[in-house]
Amino acid sequence: MTSRELTAMMQRSAVDCHKALVKEYGRYVYAIVYNKLRSCGTSEDIEECVSDVFADLFMKCEFDLSSENDIKYLIGTIAKRKAIDSFRSLTARANHMTETDEDDMRELVADFSVDEHVDRSELRQILLDKIDELGEPDSTILIQKFYYNRNSKEIARSVSMTAAAVRQRCSRAMDKLRTKLVEVGMGR
């Protein structure tokens, strides 16, 4: 599709133009975004980025009426840039913990009186087993919060609860986990 064809189609019907662009270039954009985000994003993140590419194309781009150039390169460039921005955002979010999450982790770690020479993989396995013993949704909440660095709002969506309920369950689950760790000699 050329810029001239796109402009003519846009003048007739913006909706039809949008549908035609997504139909013609949707797989192309998806492939670009998927290749950039597959290592750090969920399928929802990828689909959201694809939608952002087309939204950006429709909102920010002015098409040259006289151009006979294929717009595939323009769409590809926008897709690559959006995917890179999403990649940076997703990896920054995964590497960033909020202050309350850090405080909770410090508190949990402070409760351990484990010799420095204990194999970390054994410690992790015991911790995961004790978290699993908490049952659902507590185990899911703790895993998502401390292993995947998700906030209460994100967790709430995945367990069909409110963010406030997730925070309350998390607090109670931490207390239960401390008790379980004390029982096996890993806490005070």
Rank of each mutant, 00 (worst) to 15 (best):
I84E: 01
I78M: 06
A83R: 00
E99L: 09
D85Q: 09
E99Q: 12
A110V: 09
L90H: 00
V109Y: 12
M97A: 09
N95R: 03
T100Y: 14
E107M: 13
R106C: 13
D111C: 15
A92T: 14
T98N: 07
D85L: 11
A92F: 05
H96A: 08
N95A: 07
F112M: 15
R106A: 15
T100Q: 15
A92V: 11
L90K: 01
D85I: 14
R81L: 08
K80I: 01
L90I: 10
V109P: 07
A110N: 13
A83H: 00
D101Q: 15
R81C: 04
A83C: 04
F112P: 03
D85Y: 10
A110T: 12
A110P: 06
L90F: 02
D85T: 13
E99S: 10
F112E: 07
L90D: 01
I84D: 00
A79C: 09
R81Y: 08
R93P: 00
F87R: 03
S89P: 02
E99F: 04
S89V: 11
R106W: 10
A79H: 01
T98G: 04
L108G: 03
D103M: 14
H96Q: 08
E102V: 11
I78N: 00
M105T: 05
S89N: 10
R81A: 04
D104Q: 13
R106P: 02
S86H: 02
A79Q: 04
E102D: 08
D104M: 11
F112Q: 10
D101H: 14
R88C: 09
F112Y: 10
L90C: 03
E107H: 13
R93Y: 01
K80Y: 05
S89M: 11
R93V: 09
M105C: 09
E102I: 11
V109H: 13
A92Y: 05
L108S: 04
K82L: 05
D101S: 13
K82D: 01
E107R: 14
A94I: 06
A92G: 07
E102Y: 05
D111T: 12
V109N: 15
R106I: 12
D85M: 10
K80N: 06
R93H: 03
S89E: 06
M97Q: 07
D85S: 10
E99T: 11
I84L: 09
D85K: 10
K82N: 03
V109C: 15
R106L: 14
T98K: 06
T100S: 15
R93L: 08
R81I: 07
I78L: 10
K80V: 01
I78V: 08
F112C: 13
H96D: 06
M105S: 12
D104F: 09
S113Q: 11
I78C: 02
R106H: 13
H96C: 06
H96R: 05
T91Q: 00
A92W: 05
E102T: 11
D104S: 08
D104P: 02
D85V: 12
R88S: 08
R93D: 03
S113L: 11
S89K: 08
S89A: 12
A92C: 10
K82E: 02
T91C: 01
K80C: 04
M105Y: 11
K80G: 03
L108Y: 05
M97V: 07
R106Y: 11
F87N: 01
M97F: 02
D101T: 14
A110C: 12
D103H: 12
K80D: 03
F87I: 06
A79W: 03
I84R: 03
D104Y: 10
T98M: 08
A110M: 10
M97C: 08
A79E: 02
A83Y: 01
